[in-house]
Design a protein around this nucleic acid. Structure first.
Lengths: 194, 194
DNA sequence: CTGATTTCTTAACCTAGGTTATTTCCCATT
DNA sequence: AATGGGAAATAACCTAGGTTAAGAAATCAG
């Protein structure tokens, strides 16, 4: 199992020895996901969090009219799961699916506390990780209320890596910024003209 | 300083002895906030998080057209700050203000790591707290994309305690659910009639 | 390579929610 | 009790973004 991407990612936030990284790695299980594979399905109880080593996943909910709304994209180096299901142990309301061929490392929640007791720095790591995710999500709430769809799209393009912006179906981008694919298309043609 | 509200709140998530609670409490500073007092101001660097012992605060941003958007209400037993400013050490984009006469306990970020080293369970506490906040905020993103304004209002009334829903100016509720005060007023009169 | 399916674009029309303006209602202060 | 000022209600009108539909383009399966 190649843990270099994971190790590099963790060491951005906390300082771990090679021996500690080995222990951490032993808690993860690798999984290959061909394009459009559902990793966690709505209605099940999710008991793991996924670190993306390669490829890109998305988490989304389906509303009562059948429309998909994307909560998160997770390209290489990002984490993804249905946190609510993991924390509360209740049925998931999100689907987590690979957009392209991907590889993830899975960490079971049930063993996470054990890992934290063995390597307290990992609890710190996840606290920091979660704080950052919280900030980003709150930022998104504010932007959803204060920006127009066009500004949200421009922001999206500036914020996400080029791999996400340009190699992902546009309908996913629309489902992320909160507009219909038709309206995104209209906005894009307006932006080209100017 | 009365720490019973704080102690009770922490013990919902982690197990601390009375001695440990005493140590934790020694890291907090009490502050009284008369109605409409700004605790953290936009443009400054925020270096503390606030626990609400009594009253109710709100955090909000002001957009380029001068409109306020409320990110969070914090009634008794909740935490509030501008996390982004605290984490990144950069200038705050949020105001945090008391809505009614309030009392908060402040924890300086600069001493937080020291507290975590002394009482590791507090790091666990904040990790769990942050995970919960993240879930709630992500839920809000989804609702913002999939529900109508009327459903968001109904949800709001069902989710927040009666003290918040009924003792807060309606314009704040509007600024939280993402509509104008005029439109909230229209929705409410429609809901009464049915 | 070809037909089938999904995605994207365009355009006409529609609606949820915003804007502006006026009136009424609270209160807090004097 | 009078008065001044923000908060809420109402209503006429407006617009960002949604809906529907139909064709073009890209992607996929065989």
């Amino acid at each position: 199992m190649d843990i270099s991407v994971l190790a590099k990612h963790i060491r951005l936030k906390v300082d771990l020895s090679d021996a500690e990284i080995e222990i951490v790695a032993s808690y993860f299980v690798e999984k290959e996901l061909p394009k459009k594979t559902i990793l966690f399905r709505e209605g099940t109880i999710v008991d793991a969090i996924a670190f993306v080593v390669e490829g890109c996943l998305r988490s989304y909910s389906i509303d009562e009219n059948g429309f998909e709304h994307i909560l998160q994209f997770a390209p290489e180096g990002w984490w993804i799961t249905d946190m609510l299901s993991v924390i509360k142990g209740q049925k998931s309301v999100l689907n987590v699916e690979s957009i392209v061929d991907s590889k993830v490392l899975l960490l079971k929640r049930s063993t996470q506390d054990e890992l934290f007791d063995k390597i307290p720095k990992m609890e710190r790591f996840f606290r920091i990780l979660t704080e950052n995710a919280l900030c980003a999500t709150r930022q998104r709430v504010i932007e959803g209320m204060s920006l127009t769809a066009k500004d949200r799209y421009i922001n999206f393009c500036e914020t996400y890596p080029e791999t996400v912006v340009n190699h992902i179906p546009q309908k996913y981008v629309a489902a992320y910024i909160g507009v219909t694919p038709e309206f995104l298309s209209k906005m894009r043609s307006q932006l080209y003209r100017s």
